[in-house]
Design a protein around this nucleic acid. Structure first.
Lengths: 195, 195
DNA sequence: GACATAAAATACTAATTGGTATGTGATGGC
DNA sequence: GCCATCACATACCAATTAGTATTTTATGTC
């Protein structure tokens, strides 16, 4: 990787880190550059403004991360109920990149920025769509394989599962990680009811 | 109400309005006073700083509102499954104070502030606890009355329902109100599975 | 090694931020 | 009618914000 590309990536990764912990608007460009070996000149050489950096961060840092944690575990699922549960448990309990009190980076950014900036909204919708489609497909395949009841609505179920995730990330900020376990137990019950 | 009390309430209500739409940190004191007939002197006469105003807003504006919309509908519930569903539908569809793209004021504030400020965290936890207890009690009563299966865990179920709410408010910001209907359909299915 | 351009460093700016210092008119108790 | 204190109003301040203008240093190509 060229030195310039390294600088650019350093900016995006540190921005992600700070924005994850403090929010997008509360993270200043000065915050980012004082936490890296990057100067303001370099920042504005690589990005025309803060929002363009934010979009690059969504597409180049968050998208790959969410794909690995949320979509890949579902690909080629043979037992959809189990696979969806494992994906969720992996996300909530086993993923070392997430800190309970800071929630989920994607949920945080949706919460903060999607009402304020339609370009952010679009970029974040793409993330959510990928996940929704992966869950939906898993359920449809499960129905075809006879592992999920025929009267289950895949779209409805996907939205319901995604909602649970966003909400428990929110509650986790209030109560800490204990509520993740409580949630997962009931998720298991719910998923079983689809069989 | 005395004139001073009116001024104070005006500040809190306008602050709530602006913070609901733009977030706590993105709403400046100047924003609040230019949108009211209140000066900076009056603001800092009534509140020592911005955070104290924020806490007063949680306790004096948000708490009563959330109690009316989230707790009251469950009190004296005779059919818990139906009552919980109606409470949720009332919140998502019928409540005229909420704007889909801005989500839920309480969820927003939890998202933004609970990781950054432990005093906010505490105040917001009280809100969440009230709701949790109301849902839990409804389910326990339902079990006692034979309207909810004995093997249902009230705490788990309450967390699961609360999570769904927080998450669908998040998705609503992305997708608009259509997803509320999709969510409610699956919530109905889930609630039925408790019977 | 000359040269063009890419990449970055430095110094600045206007606007906005939360908060303060100080002044002033109204209000209520005596 | 005096006086204290309440309830504001006005003018300010230092720090921080996103962004710009200008200069300097690397880097690849011939």
């Amino acid at each position: 990787m060229s030195k310039a590309a390294t600088t650019r990536l350093m900016i995006l990764q540190k921005a992600f880190e700070l924005i994850y912990a403090n929010g997008y608007q509360a993270t200043s460009i000065d915050d980012i550059i004082t936490n890296t070996a990057v100067t303001k000149g370099a920042f504005f050489y690589h990005f025309p403004n803060k929002d363009e950096m934010g979009l690059a961060m969504i597409n180049e840092v968050m998208y790959p991360g969410m794909h690995a944690a949320m979509v890949l575990p579902l690909i080629n699922a043979t037992n959809p109920i189990l696979e969806i549960y494992k994906m969720m448990k992996g996300l909530l309990i086993e993923n070392p990149h997430f800190i309970v009190k800071y929630g989920c980076p994607a949920i945080n950014l949706i919460e903060e920025m999607s009402p304020l900036n339609s370009t952010f909204n679009k970029a974040l919708s793409k993330l959510a769509n990928q996940w929704q489609e992966a869950i939906e497909l898993t359920i449809r395949n499960g129905k075809a394989a006879g592992k999920v009841r025929k009267d289950v609505n895949a779209t409805q179920t996907a939205f319901f599962i995604m909602s649970g995730y966003g909400g428990i990330r929110n509650l986790g900020k209030l109560y800490g990680k204990d509520c993740y376990g409580v949630y997962l137990k009931e998720l298991k019950r719910y998923l079983a009811s689809l069989q």
